[in-house]
Amino acid sequence: MIIYWLLQIFIYLIQLITAPLTLLPVATLSVNLAGTLTQAGNYLALFDIFLPIPELFITFGIVLVIEAGYFSYKVVRWVYSKIPGIT
């Protein structure tokens, strides 16, 4: 009972924090772009027997996420430093 309610409260907190994100629209791609992705998948599948394509994507994905996160952090810091009265 105690653990259950602790976890429920934790889940409610996550729901509260992520609530603004649920207001965002559902992601959709145009026909052309979705077709491009699928086509790219077909081309890459040709090389999947030689190269570990999933690992390649995961690696680049992680690099991109880290770099993008670091860049976002710097942008936020720069904007923050421009607020009058804050050094």
Binding site: T18, L21, T22, L24, P25, V26, A27, T28, L29, A34, L37, T38, A40, G41, L44, A45, D48, I53, P54, F57
Partner: peptide, 20 residues
């Protein structure tokens, strides 16, 4: 959240490439 921007795009890409 999974279908919302920006996570939804990742989901679309993963779906497109999930045949690997």
């Amino acid at each position: 959240l999974g279908n919302r921007i920006p996570f939804g795009y990742a989901k679309i890409i993963i779906t497109a490439f999930q045949d690997f």
